[in-house]
Each structure stands twice: as C-alpha cells, then as structure tokens.
Design a binder for these strands. Structure first.
Length: 415
RNA sequence: GCGGGGAUCGCCUAGCCCGGUAGGGCGUGGGAUUGCUAAUCCCAUGUCAGCAAUGACUCGGGGGUUCAAAUCCCCCUCCCCGCGCCA
C-alpha cells in the first residue's frame, strides 16, 4: 500500500507511475473516495463525542440521584444517528481499502521505463558463455522422470531421483550456510498461511494466478517463504535497535502458474512446486537501498561460487512486480539453451508491504512509530539452479560435475 | 476430538459476579540530584488525526442486548491443564 498522503499531495506522481507500469487504474475514483472518507471520519467523530459527553452526564446525574430520563431520551437519538453514520462510513471504508490496496508501489528513479523485459537494463556480467550440446532434460536422463509425474499429478510436476535429490538438498544446506555466514537468522515458516497474511505480501489479482487455496479453510499455500516472512512481524512495532532483521527463509514453494500456458513447458524450469532459500530483510527506510545492493551481492557470490555464469539486470517498469519499487534479476547462463534465464529476483518493496501488514519500528519509547522497509531476494530456487548446474557442468560422457562447494554436502563429485 | 480454565496498553496484574472516563507494578525513554556507578525523586510511556488545544479509537476477533459493554449473551480464533488419537 502506498502512503495515502501521496494521493492528496502528489496525484500526478501516481498517474506517472501507473503509466510507466502500463496499469489501468481509475485514480479519480480513489481521490473522490478518499475525500469522502475524511468527511465520514469527521462526522463520525463528532457524533461519538456527543454520545460520550452525554453518557458521562447520565452517569454523573445517576450518581447524584437525579432523574436522567430526559438525558437518556436524547442519547437514544444520538445513538441512532451514530448507527446510521457508522454504516455509511463502513461502506466507504471498504471501498477505499479495496481501491488503495490495488494501487501498485511507487517506482524508484533508477528503474528503466518500458513495457516489458525488452526494456530491462543489464548492469553486469560474470563468467564465460559457451554453448553446450545438452539441455537439462537430456543431461538429467534417468535422474528426472516427468512422464510418471504427469501421470500422477499433472503437468509441471516432477520426480527427482538419486543424484538430483542429493543435489537439491545440498543446494539448500549450502545456501543456508552461505546466509548464516552473513548473519542471517534461519527460518522455516508455515507452508500455509491465512488470507489476511497473504494479502499483506501480494496484491489481490495475483491470488488467482499463483496461489493455491486449501478447500474449506482460510489457508493458502505459500508461493515463497517471502509471504510467510513478511507477515511474521505484522501488527508489530519493532525496536529500532534490532534492525535490520535479516532472515534466511527455507521452504517449498507452490505456484499455480495459471498465466503461463505454453511457456517453459519442458523440464523443471517452471514447475508447480520447488524448494527455495530466500533472503528477507526488514530495514529502516534510510538503510534499504544499501541493503538492496548487499542482498544482490550476496546472491551473486553464491552463483560465482557454483561457477554458474550470469548477468544482472534491472527490471523495467513494465516487467516489475506490483509490490516492488525496484527489482534486480540475476539471469544464469543456460549453456544447453544458449540463453540467460532468471534464477534470482531481488526486490526492495520499500514501505509497501509494511503498510499493508502494519509493521513499524521506533528507536525510543516515546517516538512516533514509523513504517519500515521490506526487501526480498532469492538466494536459490533449487529447480532452476539445478537446471543451470546440469547445463553448464555437463560432461561429454553424460555425467555432471558437482561444483566444489556442494561436494562435501553430497559426498559426491560427479553424478 | 472431548471436558475444564484462560486471552486487559512491551511484560506482570486489578477491574468482570453487581454495565457508566481501564487503575497499579515492572521495564523502557527523558530530566533532577549526588565524585563515578548505584540508589532516590519528578515527568513520559497503547493507536490514529492535529503545529497545538483537543478529539476519536483501544481490553484476542466478529455479532447481539442496552441510552451506555473490558463487564451481560452468542459465534469464532488462539493459549494452558486433563483425557483420547497420532508421525
């Protein structure tokens, strides 16, 4: 949620943002609704004050033994008017919340403006980019069984076997150790969370396309541990001395991929379920942009250590997610496809999630609480990184070289 | 799943039976004072709007009764104790 003051003070900035994101949104409706909201609040306040004053008078006159009949009669009238007013206000409030919560986040100045990924701005490259003969499906061979998975669960599911199972778990263990080294607290979150929590982390329209719901329960499967970790401190005021809070979330991720018909159909690059280690950080506003760089750097170190060539890009205004103010992607070189493909997404969501989830901080007892900033970045989504390892580290004999840092986690050098 | 007991402003707690401005302690912040520390004393300390004076909201959540609900009634969530089941 954006700061409502922007609606009043700088509506043109919002219009500009909406245009950059190519989002269709009726801002005038919100501006009107927000004006009504303030009027409703004032009206309700006035009536409540009258009711409270009257109640106090009744109480006092009863204590002194006087007849309060007339006062009670008057209070009945006030209460009735208040009830009507409160209903009107509630209706307005619901409309307002719906409108304001569907506005995307404001965009940072350094984000390139453009309609889609063709406008993304490359910011760096690492490693060689030679082509190799096998894509990950052919390299995996018997270690990956897509056919039986589709029989049992449907498309975009998979059975991993032997070496790939070990590789999957080795990546997770190594990733957790990597983040521990940088002072992150390891977190294994709930894999299902309630609607209110989910709505704090994502925008309503994304529910339909990515989130699985548990039937007959107010529970949703997390699409990433980010969702559970953003909501972890909801409705809290955090002691500023403890910031930044750096969490390494590890969890399975479940995604409907409803909007992705036909794309990345083959293999395990785009699937309904995978494991991920995620960086999630709460910072003070003035620290968040430095933290954003730090998180990207930590993820880059990880891919360098695995000898996976990559490039970094800033997502353009049209390609970026709605809650992010700025997003870097790391795209790994997939030697079997001779293409860079996304493996990491590193976003500063500024105060957008914090406002939705009411997460604030203050440095001293009597200070006014302030919204903090939340950031998230993939460290490793195991399926995609396994694709990168298989394609880049494939050998002529059909085996796969295991990157050095993973060897001790697997007790294997080759699979 | 069944029975019983709970949820109050960071923590602890009073208030609930008997409806009428949510009180105290600890902790925390600021200040005073004394060589230092400690101790002591004063002020502040739930949230929101406001420059402020003020005002509104707030007793796990949602309904209801009432002129008026922390308090009475109903539903839900979570926690504790006992029993049952269980990786």
């Amino acid at each position: 949620m954006i700061d409502p003051r922007i609606i009043r003070e700088r509506p043109d900035d919002i219009r500009h943002m909406l245009q950059c994101r190519a989002v269709d949104y009726d801002l005038d409706a919100l501006v009107l609704c927000e004006q009504e909201r303030r009027r409703h609040m004032a009206d309700t306040d006035r009536l409540r004050q009258e009711r409270n004053d009257c109640g106090r008078t009744i109480s006092a006159s009863k204590k002194s033994g006087e007849d309060a009949g007339l006062l009670i009669k008057h209070m009945k009238v006030v209460s009735a008017r208040l009830q009507v007013q409160e209903i009107a206000q509630a209706a307005n409030e619901e409309k307002y919340q719906k409108l304001i919560r569907s506005i995307p986040n404001m965009i940072h100045d350094t984000v390139p403006v453009g309609p889609d990924d063709t406008a993304n701005a490359e910011t760096g490259r690492w490693g060689p980019t030679d082509s190799k003969p096998g894509n990950h499906i052919s390299v995996a061979g018997d270690l990956l069984d897509m056919e039986r998975a589709s029989k049992v669960a449907g498309s975009r599911f998979y059975y991993l076997k032997d070496g790939l199972v070990r590789l999957n778990y080795a990546l997770l263990s190594y990733a957790l150790d990597h983040l521990s080294k940088y002072g992150y607290v390891l977190v294994q979150p709930p894999y299902m969370i309630n609607r209110q929590s989910m709505e704090g982390a994502i925008i309503a329209e994304d529910f339909e396309d990515v989130i699985y719901k548990i039937q007959d329960k107010d529970l949703y499967m997390i699409g990433t541990s980010e969702h559970a970790m953003a909501a972890m401190h909801s409705d809290e005021i955090i002691d500023g001395k403890t910031l930044p809070l750096r969490y390494a979330g590890v969890s399975p991720c479940f995604r409907k991929e409803a909007g992705a018909h036909g794309t990345d159909q083959k293999g395990i690059f785009r699937v309904h379920q995978f494991e991920k280690v995620e960086q999630f950080v709460y910072t003070k506003p003035e620290q968040s942009w430095a933290e954003h760089q730090r998180m990207l750097c930590i993820s880059e170190q990880f891919y360098k250590s695995l000898e996976i060539p990559y490039r970094t890009v800033i997502l353009s205004s049209g390609d970026m997610g709605k809650v992010a103010s700025k997003t870097y992607d790391i795209e790994a070189w997939m030697a079997g496809q001779s293409a860079y493909r996304e493996v990491v997404s590193c976003s500063n969501c500024t105060d957008y999630q914090a406002r939705r989830l009411m997460i604030r901080y203050r440095d001293r007892t009597n200070d006014k609480p302030q919204y903090l900033h939340t950031l998230n970045s993939t460290l490793v989504a195991t399926t995609r990184t396994m694709v990168a390892i298989m394609e880049n580290h494939q050998r002529a004999d059909g085996h796969i070289d295991i990157p050095k840092p993973l060897q001790s986690y697997m007790n294997l050098k080759v699979i």
